Computed example of a mutant assay.
Amino acid sequence: MATRRGASPSDNQREQWAAERRAKLADLHERVVAEVGKITDSDQWRRWLQFAAKFHGYSFNNVLLIMAQRPDATWVAGYKRWKTEFGRHVRKGEKGIAILAPVTKRVTDDPQESPEERSEPTKQDPQLSAAEQTVQPARVLHTFKPVAVFDISQTEGPDIDVPGGPAFADVMPQLLEGQAPAGLYDQLVMLAEERGYTVERGDCRGANGFTDYTNRLIKVRDDVDDAQAVKTMIHELGHVDLHTPSDFGWETTRGCRGEREVEAESVAFLVAER
Rank of each mutant, 00 (worst) to 15 (best):
F51D: 05
P146M: 01
H239T: 05
D159K: 11
V162F: 01
M233H: 01
V149D: 02
L141N: 08
P181F: 08
R4S: 15
P9G: 10
H56T: 11
T143Y: 04
E117I: 12
K92R: 12
H235Y: 03
K24A: 14
E261F: 02
G209Y: 07
V63N: 03
D223P: 06
L25E: 05
Y213P: 00
T104L: 12
L25G: 02
A73N: 06
L188A: 00
G183F: 00
F168C: 15
K123P: 02
R118M: 12
P163H: 03
G6Q: 01
E20D: 15
L184A: 11
L217R: 04
V103I: 10
S119K: 05
Q187R: 11
F168M: 14
V230G: 04
G96C: 01
A130T: 09
E265L: 05
V267K: 01
T108G: 07
W45L: 15
H243Y: 06
P9K: 09
D241T: 15
R70W: 08
Q228F: 02
L25D: 01
V149I: 12
G238K: 00
L64S: 00
P137K: 00
H142A: 12
V262K: 12
F51W: 08
E15H: 10
Q174N: 13
V271R: 04
D125P: 02
R221F: 08
A264L: 04
R81A: 13
G57A: 13
S10E: 04
K231Y: 12
V271I: 15
Q154V: 04
I218F: 05
R260K: 15
E265M: 02
I39H: 06
T40Q: 08
Q50M: 10
S153P: 00
A19V: 04
R274F: 11
R21S: 01
R81V: 14
A207F: 01
P245T: 04
R260E: 13
L175V: 14
Q174W: 09
V220I: 14
V220N: 02
R31H: 05
V240A: 06
F168V: 14
A130Q: 10
Q228K: 06
K54H: 13
E193D: 10
Q228A: 01
E113S: 14
V33C: 10
L100V: 00
C256L: 11
F86Y: 13
A2E: 11
K24L: 09
W17T: 10
S129I: 00
